[in-house]
């Protein structure tokens, strides 16, 4: 009936579609809880800007994801994701298979404002001899350089940042 001008008209009834019912038991939220456990207690919670961090769970039938922060990223960008008290931040992404809770992909990008960044990645689908399945990018070596690593977890990355980068004792 309408050719343009109104978002409501374009989306029509889809705007009124009732949401799915409760998803309290979904594994994405459970995974978020696991990461929150690292952030929740002192002394780490004191090293977070605002005392907490927003982590988004998204659950679908075949897979689920958790993520923190989005948008362009670099030394000059505004912090998003898990933001630490010194202004540095962690952008976090994990993708899991719903059927068996197998980890499919991850990306943990830690950025120091006006400074270096490190990014741990799991790229199973893209793995080749030149592209290790688990690897680390360091900004000073350039994005093409992938240093092989073992598999790391979000919890380990958070603890590493707290202890080695933003700890009050460093």
């Amino acid at each position: 009936m309408v050719s343009g001008g109104s978002r409501y008209w374009k989306l029509g009834k889809s705007l009124l579609r009732k949401p799915e019912v409760s998803m309290t038991s979904d594994p994405a939220r459970a995974r978020r809880q696991e990461l929150w456990r690292v952030l929740r207690y002192g002394p780490y919670n004191k090293l977070l800007r605002g005392g907490w961090a927003q982590i988004k769970p998204e659950y679908f039938r075949h897979f689920y994801m958790i993520s923190a922060g989005k948008g362009r990223i670099g030394p000059e960008t505004e912090p998003t994701g898990v933001i630490f008290s010194d202004g540095s931040f962690l952008r976090l992404f994990e993708k899991w298979r719903s059927r068996d809770n197998a980890l499919l992909e991850y990306s943990y990008h830690y950025q120091v404002p006006n400074g270096v960044s490190v990014r741990y990645e799991m790229d199973s689908a893209a793995a080749t001899p030149d592209h290790p399945e688990y690897h680390l990018h360091i900004s000073e070596l350039g994005d093409e350089c992938r240093l092989p690593t073992g598999r790391v977890s979000g919890e380990e990355i958070l603890q590493m940042i707290f202890e080695q980068f933003v700890s009050p004792t460093t």
Binding site: E58, F60, R61, G71, R91, S107, D143
Partner: peptide, 22 residues
């Protein structure tokens, strides 16, 4: 490949396909 949200973007496209089918 350099897009920081690339993995999530691609996964959301996968999710859209799944949800549309449902």
């Amino acid at each position: 490949r350099d897009i920081p949200d690339g993995k999530r973007w691609l996964s959301l496209l996968e999710a859209r396909k799944e949800l549309t089918q449902e």
